[in-house]
């Protein structure tokens, strides 16, 4: 019985860990690589959920067509935000970007409240709900699909950064923008493409998780906090780090909630961050540390 309990806690933790890694992916790119401290990350996630609700409930699309449409729309949105807003504060240090994204997050939350209201919204799921048992362990089909799509997105984003010309241009630009532009890279486009990719990943995770929980205008704050925890744990700009950070957070929360108390589970992430900052400030897998 105790082993059953342990296995179920572990499964819960791993599932949550993949979800955390997924929701932090966009921030890994924008904060970790571009060095924009993006406080609007949670709001991009929220917009993904809300537009996901719109395309599945109003336009009547199935989940995966909806996901594709949300990806296109949010990529365009991210591109525009970078070209018209982030562009203006680039190269001026971190503070203007922080102020800008805080302002953007307040604007996005209130615009959403104005347009769709504060009610929680249901995003139609990819598969039917209902329990699925592996021996004593319960999960749902929807969660397994979300874990699968999550892993695919993480792998896809990793391949884009590591294997494509665009990815090479991104890495070059963030290492040395001057040298990159001298070598003929249109850095403006690269910044915008990275921001758009980060925004899209955040939105896709918002829609995916919105189909399991619900989408709501005010979810952004908590998502931003947890994503910063994951990115700091894992190390800036590292996909492996995001996965490790996500899993660490998910499993730690599950065991804390399981064996101690569920009422204070949000404390766990911050304790982990304090520990990692004390003992390994560059994060578990930092790619910046080598360069610093």
């Amino acid at each position: 019985m105790d082993l059953d309990l342990f296995l179920q806690f572990l499964t819960n933790g791993v599932v949550m860990g993949v979800f955390y890694a997924l929701s932090a992916l966009g921030l890994t790119l924008i904060f970790g690589l571009m060095r924009v401290v993006n406080f609007a990350h949670g709001e991009f996630y929220m917009l993904g959920g809300v537009t996901g609700w719109f395309v599945t409930s109003y336009l009547g699309l199935d989940f995966f067509s909806g996901l594709a449409l949300v990806a296109v729309a949010m990529a365009a949105f991210g591109w525009l935000v970078d070209r018209f807003l982030i562009e203006r504060v680039r190269g001026q240090g971190e503070e203007p970007g922080i102020l800008l994204t805080i302002g953007l997050s307040i604007f996005l939350v209130n615009a959403t409240l104005l347009v769709v209201g504060p009610a929680p919204m249901k995003v139609a799921g990819a598969v039917s709900e209902g329990p699925l048992f592996f021996g004593p362990i319960a999960v749902t089909k929807l969660r397994l699909v979300a874990v699968g799509v999550g892993i695919a997105l993480i792998a896809g984003a990793h391949l884009i950064i590591r294997r494509t010309r665009l990815g090479a241009a991104m890495r070059a630009t963030f290492q040395d923008p001057m040298a990159a532009s001298l070598a003929g890279i249109r850095t403006g486009n690269v910044y915008a493409a990275t921001f758009a990719l980060g925004c899209t990943l955040a939105a896709l995770s918002g829609m995916l998780l919105g189909s399991i929980y619900s989408a709501q205008a005010s979810v952004g704050g908590l998502i931003s906090l947890k994503s910063f925890v994951v990115v700091i744990l894992g190390g800036m700009g590292s996909f492996a780090g995001a996965i490790a950070g996500g899993l660490l957070l998910g499993v730690a929360e599950a065991f804390w909630g399981g064996y101690v108390a569920t009422g204070m589970v949000d404390v766990v992430g911050f304790v982990l961050v304090i520990l990692i900052l004390l003992f390994r400030p560059q994060g578990l897998f930092s790619i910046r540390a080598e360069r610093a």
Partner: peptide, 12 residues
Amino acid sequence: EYFDHGTTDFFT
């Protein structure tokens, strides 16, 4: 058991 406002996952 108690949980915090805004909790989304209750599996634990």
